[in-house]
């Protein structure tokens, strides 16, 4: 996994944790175990009753084992999305 992360360094990423939470931030670093450091991190909180809420949480170190998926974020698409009106359930946790 860690080899696969090289090209995302210093880029905006989307991180989906196994408990169902989603984070976006800049990928500042990573190691062999795919532990990652995110900066300018925001947790994206989804809800079916109100629009998506983006909560700034600063620098985050995320343990590799808790990461289900990391994706490169297309900033243009992301900024163009109407997140305030996205009313959906949060992503489901992954039970290993």
């Amino acid at each position: 996994m860690s080899d696969l992360l090289k090209e995302l360094v210093d880029k905006p990423v989307f991180v989906y944790l196994t408990d169902g939470r989603t984070l976006v931030g800049q990928l500042t670093g990573y190691d062999q175990a795919a532990n990652v450091i995110l900066s300018q991190t925001h947790e994206r909180i989804f809800s079916s009753s109100e629009g998506m809420k983006s909560v700034p949480i600063g620098v985050y170190v995320v343990r590799g084992e808790t990461i289900a998926l990391i994706g490169g974020l297309d900033e243009e698409l992301d900024e163009g999305a109407d997140w305030e009106n996205v009313r959906v359930e949060p992503l489901d946790p992954v039970f290993l």
Partner: peptide
């Protein structure tokens, strides 16, 4: 429709265990 959470994600790494 059910999962718009990743609409701006164009490539990704998926952990094998999930």
């Amino acid at each position: 429709e059910r999962y718009p959470h990743m609409l701006a994600v164009k490539n990704c790494f998926i952990r094998g265990s999930v």
